[in-house]
């Protein structure tokens, strides 16, 4: 019983070692799911548009005439070198797609997460604290409504209200065409690029373009968080150590903030990790709605063009993100909750 607390470092190393099998399983799944579709990627994307001889050459160049197991090993090797292949339809390295469009998605999802966390946790804590009050009831309603609404519908409503009716905010793209043309890209994150560029008007333009998509995507995730945080606060407030703290004469403010809220947020971190999947699919819809040139937007386009290589590359990238986030979430959990490290 009297063991010292296991260090965070030991925990981190163990956790990182577990990434490899997880990675292997995910990559294998992606590879074989893409191969279940009939025909080969080249025929699917270009069949009928090029003479058979040229198709044959392309198949050979891409290695689709090799045995499946060899292709599989090649694929794993490529991923290890962060080479996700070249798209068939427009001959772009998938890595470029990930960097250029992925950064747009990163910018969108990051700010969506900021919205989700501040709105979701903030309102959830208020609702849990003021149980059954008017505020609680309205917050709960709000949570259900935004969660139940599909991203594109909420997006359309926002576009109609703030774009068409009020004319306050732009409804499409990452920036106005002239800004997009002039802005030098260093990081592909427009907000940071605009700051580096140092022009106030550019920065403002980028921020205005970001507001509606980020709020739309963020609110959908906030809906889940509100309910989760609220329930956890209620549960924690009933806890034995809360009563014990009150019995020691700790003032109510400390009881709520130090004992109830922090403990209530532990399970939220875990769920947040799972929400990344929702964030990804939400990003696809949000990006399409707002014409946001992100990776989800590109994924839809490549899917329509039956470009398997592009799809496989992007899905592989998504899988890597999910692994990365799950490790990150475990670290955050271990940092907050000493019992996890044990």
């Amino acid at each position: 019983m009297a063991k010292p607390t296991t260090s965070l470092r030991t925990y981190a190393l163990t956790r990182l070692a577990l990434v490899l099998p997880m990675l292997w399983i995910l990559l294998t799944l992606v590879f074989f799911m893409m191969r279940v579709a009939p025909g080969d990627p080249v025929t699917a994307a270009l069949g009928g548009r090029l003479p058979e001889k040229e198709l044959q050459e392309r198949r050979h160049a891409a290695g689709y005439d090799k045995p499946l197991i060899v292709q599989y090993v090649d694929y794993l090797g490529d991923v290890a070198r962060l080479n996700f292949g070249t798209t068939i339809t427009d001959d772009r390295p998938v890595t470029d797609v990930i960097i250029e469009n992925g950064s747009a998605t990163l910018e969108l999802t990051f700010w969506a997460m900021v919205v989700a966390l501040s709105v979701g946790i903030g309102l959830g804590l208020v609702a849990g604290r003021l149980r059954d009050s008017g505020a609680d009831v309205s917050i709960r309603m709000f949570g259900i409504v935004v969660y139940a609404m599909p991203a594109f519908f909420l997006g359309f409503l926002a576009q109609l209200l703030f774009g068409e009716r009020l004319g306050w905010l732009p409804t499409s793209g990452r920036a106005s065409p002239e800004v997009q043309f002039l802005l030098p890209t260093h990081t592909h994150l427009y907000l940071i690029d605009a700051i580096i560029y140092g022009d106030w008007a550019t920065f403002k333009d980028v921020v205005l373009h970001l507001i509606l998509p980020a709020a739309t995507l963020g609110l959908i995730i906030a809906g889940v968080l509100i309910r989760l945080v609220r329930v956890n606060v209620l549960q924690t407030m009933k806890g034995d150590y809360i009563e014990a703290a009150r019995a020691r004469g700790i003032d109510e403010k400390s009881v709520v903030y130090r004992h109830a809220f922090k403990n209530a947020l532990v399970p939220v971190v875990t769920v947040l990790g799972l929400q990344v999947a929702l964030l990804m699919s939400g990003a696809v819809l949000t990006e399409t709605t707002f014409n946001w040139p992100g990776i989800g937007f590109e994924l839809v386009r490549y899917l329509n063009n039956r470009d398997y290589i592009a799809v496989q590359g992007i899905i592989t990238f998504f899988a890597l993100i999910v692994i990365f986030v799950s490790v990150l979430i475990d670290f955050v959990n271990a940092w907050i909750d000493p019992r996890v490290r044990y």
């Binding site: 150590y241 009563e243 014990a244 020691r248 004469g249 922090k262 000493p338």
Partner: peptide, 24 residues
Amino acid sequence: LRRMRGPDIALIFQEPMTRLNPLM
């Protein structure tokens, strides 16, 4: 009353396992 809980009257509970905040 809060000020009196602790220095004047203290309460010891039945089940010690859950009475301490696990994160503190």
